[in-house]
Design a protein around this nucleic acid. Structure first.
Lengths: 162, 162
DNA sequence: CAAATATATGTAGTTGACTACATATATTTG
DNA sequence: CAAATATATGTAGTCAACTACATATATTTG
């Protein structure tokens, strides 16, 4: 077994990160080609608020699967873009309720056809023999079953016996 | 077609990044469990210098597939750990030649059995129905054939005709 | 009902990669 | 052979996520 395989596994994230960077850059270009001023990283927030119009920061974070500080950063950017607005929840003063502005809603209407194109293009990219999305999900499942560390421990124990 | 698919594609990198973070953390623990003071991110540099004992910074960057500034950062860390050493190339004063120290070589000997365990564990994790490594390679190939942006353009053009 | 605990938000600093730019040396070419 | 170009290295700053910690408000419990 070639030790470089281990490199391969540890390097997956780096490679995917690069791929993702490229996809984000192209995403930005695609929006621009349609005359739209929108960054791909804003999509999860905007789309979620489109589907669930009023959410607190933590609810939104949970929906998009990000940490709440990451979400707060995105919300700041979107607020300066005037695409979202927010205010205190009157029944629970801890909560800040976030929602789209009219400008945000109008932008979504313009973006919808672009999203369709993006979906078609990204499906072309990822729907190969080993589907990347499915592979991801499978590995996440494996990790949940047993972590990398736990697996290593079991393998070590087995080796010690033989 | 559900628009959230697009989120899925753009979110791949984030998810993979998290997975990679977890794997790195566990990797650190596995080294520690063996009494070794080594960070997973150092592996590409150390292993490459093990196979190709003397390399310049740019040669090394190319081997591990990182940008040269990223490589320089790793080399700095490894130099403070006294795992590598470096000096000017006498025939080409621009080049800095990098190599393992004795300490570095001794550490590799200690790490080799640990790498075997890591390879076995990570193979368990990623060798599922849709193999993650292969999926990655396939998507990289697709991107080389035609970028996300180009694909979107073609799809848009086709739409305009219909 | 006061104290302890839980929840919501926010700030600061970290991580591991990157790009853009600056500088030093080597090589090529008019 | 001097000027232009190419290569090698290094520095500074960016990016998109994170964790750890701090604070404010709400809820639960002895």
């Amino acid at each position: 077994m070639n030790v470089i395989n281990e490199l391969g596994v540890l390097a997956i994230a780096t490679r995917l990160q690069r791929l993702a960077e490229q996809i984000r850059k192209d995403g930005l270009l695609i929006y621009k080609a349609h005359g739209l001023d929108f960054e791909p990283k804003w999509f999860p927030v905007i789309y979620t608020l489109h589907v669930k119009p009023v959410l607190s920061v933590v609810e939104l974070s949970a929906e998009i699967g990000y940490s709440h500080p990451s979400t707060i950063t995105l919300l700041k950017e979107l607020e300066t873009q005037k695409l979202i607005k927010s205010g205190k929840d009157k029944t629970d003063e801890r909560k800040r309720l976030v929602q789209l502005t009219e400008k945000g809603q109008a932008l979504i209407t313009q973006m919808k056809p672009v999203w369709q194109v993006m979906i078609a293009a990204s499906t072309q990219l990822t729907d190969t023999q080993n589907n990347l999305m499915k592979a991801m999900e499978e590995v996440e499942q494996q990790m949940e079953l047993q972590s990398f560390y736990q697996r290593a421990k079991v393998i070590m124990a087995a080796k010690a016996l033989s």
